[in-house]
């Protein structure tokens, strides 16, 4: 009672007719509290890529750089997880990107859009317009971006929760001054070994690559994984329609998943 008296007088002093009920106050506090931790705001990735990323998923608001021979397939595989979960993927530049390969990697073509490469000075503006509206943005890592533009873009990505993937394809000619694209995680592909192709027979099936991941913050511990690229066996494109299979023997990669080299009869000269 001794403590109640001043409170009562204070209420009287500020009496405006509305008394805030503690239960409601608690509700408001619950609603205002940032309950979503950064690590909970993630986009899923396909199973084989999980060991490469902190928490086994793509953190929203992060930037990833992908480089090396096989980087294109890796970047498409990276985008496949969010795409299958309903996210939109937009590719800026990279007119050479094989769209059929994107579909085979698992990217849903219904939620894929392609933006022509902007003029050299306008990359930051165009990408910034997409950040927030699109979940995964794949850009040409070779495009020129000044360090200050890169920093501004990184903070915008962090704030709006998109994922920016800067892809530098290994098979295309490198540029002298690559852009300063932000990267929280850098995935570099090394040591690829193809299987399926022989001296005049078979056809390329998949390759074993070693991917090394390093980065900043939660991704600073270097990670490494050996994986198959393409990582997902494509359900949409049966290889039985291919001429090689038609020429030699029916061959279904899904059935022969475990085997390494599939002996096929020699096509071409030996067919005589």
């Amino acid at each position: 009672m001794a403590r109640g008296a001043p409170v009562a007088s204070a209420v009287r002093l500020f009496d405006t007719g509305v008394v805030v009920v503690p239960a409601e106050l608690r509700q408001v506090a619950d609603r205002a509290r940032p309950v979503t931790l950064a690590r909970e705001r993630t986009l899923p990735v396909v199973e084989p890529l999980r060991p490469l990323l902190p928490d086994g998923a793509l953190a929203r608001g992060s930037a990833v750089a992908v480089a090396g021979a096989g980087a294109t397939t890796l970047a498409l595989t990276l985008a496949a997880g969010p795409s299958l979960a309903g996210a939109w993927v937009v590719v800026v530049g990279l007119a050479e990107l094989g769209l059929a390969a994107a579909a085979e990697a698992g990217v849903d073509l219904r939620r894929l859009a392609l933006v022509d490469a902007p003029e050299p000075g306008r990359w930051a503006t165009v990408v910034a317009a997409l950040v927030g509206g699109v979940d995964v943005i794949v850009v040409d890592g070779r495009a020129l971006l000044t360090p200050s533009e890169g920093r501004r873009l990184a903070s915008r990505v962090r704030e709006r929760g998109s994922v920016l993937v800067a892809l530098s394809p290994g098979s295309l000619p490198a540029v002298r001054r690559p852009g300063a694209w932000p990267a929280d995680v850098t995935l570099s592909v090394a040591a690829g070994r193809w299987e399926g192709l022989g001296a005049g027979h078979g056809h390329l099936r998949r390759r074993r690559v070693r991917v090394e991941a390093e980065g900043r913050g939660r991704a600073s511990r270097p990670r490494r994984a050996d994986l198959w690229l393409p990582a997902v066996p494509s359900p949409a494109s049966p290889s039985t329609g291919s001429n090689v299979a038609a020429l030699t023997t029916t061959f279904d990669p899904a059935q022969e998943e475990g085997s390494t080299v599939v002996p096929l009869r020699r096509a071409g000269r030996a067919a005589r």
């Binding site: 939109w88 937009v90 939620r111 894929l112 933006v115 022509d116 165009v126 927030g132 509206g133 699109v134």
Partner: peptide, 22 residues
């Protein structure tokens, strides 16, 4: 809807034909 809006912004920046879909 969000993606459509973002792509419309890009169309405003680069021209309508700059955005394509597969």
């Amino acid at each position: 809807e969000r993606a459509t809006r973002a792509l419309a912004r890009v169309q405003g920046l680069l021209g309508v034909d700059a955005v394509s879909v597969p």
